[in-house]
Design a protein around this nucleic acid. Structure first.
Length: 203
DNA sequence: ACCCAGGTGGCCC
DNA sequence: GGGCCACATGGG
């Protein structure tokens, strides 16, 4: 939970981020462990794999046909254009995000997952948890777009990937409770920021 | 037999 | 800019 996203490399964050789209993490864990067992959880293996090998490994997480094709196609493109995912570290945060968004299969949230958890750069992730929690605390968030929510957090928080990760983990914890009021300050890992810059705008 | 989950792309207007 | 649909499995 210290590192909320369980992965050891940018590639693993990328794979998990694709697989978890409109799926649940339990099934993604099975899919990832299948990939590991079949020696398919590395750049060259994914680039060289047959589609059916990838499909068979990731089937439990759903949408396995299009996800298998996207995994291979994006890895091949990254490999030939940048050598590896780490090759993207040469660029500025916003540029990395733009590059990732050009690939079919990577949308706003997946790009932010990779940038924040794969590269430890400050780009706030807005997922279903975030939308649900914020909408519950203030119904006006219901009609906000992805980029509205992203801007809301990024303008209220210090530009620090550690803070972004902790805030996101905190929101996920909050989503598991029935809390409908402003959280107690001492329950929040960002108590000062939440109290004075974020959650005071809600109530 | 439903409904949902840590979305995205391709349409359409 | 937004609304709608297909994509697919496993669990409640």
């Amino acid at each position: 939970m210290h590192e909320w996203w369980p992965a050891n490399s940018a590639l693993e964050v990328f794979v998990g981020a694709i697989l978890t789209q409109q799926s649940n993490w339990k099934n993604v864990e099975i899919a990832i462990s299948n990939l590991k067992r079949n020696k398919l959880l590395d750049m060259q293996s994914i680039c060289n794999a047959n589609i059916w090998q990838l499909e068979r490994s990731i089937r439990p997480c759903g949408f396995y046909r299009q996800k298998a094709r996207r995994l291979k196609s994006i890895c091949s493109a990254i490999d030939s254009e940048f050598g590896s995912f780490e090759g993207l570290l040469l660029y500025k945060t916003e540029k990395i995000r733009e590059i990732l968004l050009q690939y079919t299969g990577i949308g706003p949230e997946t790009a932010d997952d990779i940038v924040l958890y794969g590269f430890s750069r400050a780009s706030f992730v807005v997922d279903m948890y975030t939308k649900r929690v914020m909408s519950r605390l203030d119904s006006s968030f219901r009609e906000k777009s992805y980029y509205d929510l992203k801007a809301y957090f990024e303008s209220g928080l210090p530009n620090d990937p550690i803070i972004y990760k902790r805030m996101h983990a905190y929101i996920v914890e909050l989503s598991k409770t029935n809390c409908k009021a402003k959280p107690k300050c001492n329950n929040c890992p960002l108590n000062v920021i939440c109290e004075h810059h974020l959650f005071n705008q809600i109530n």
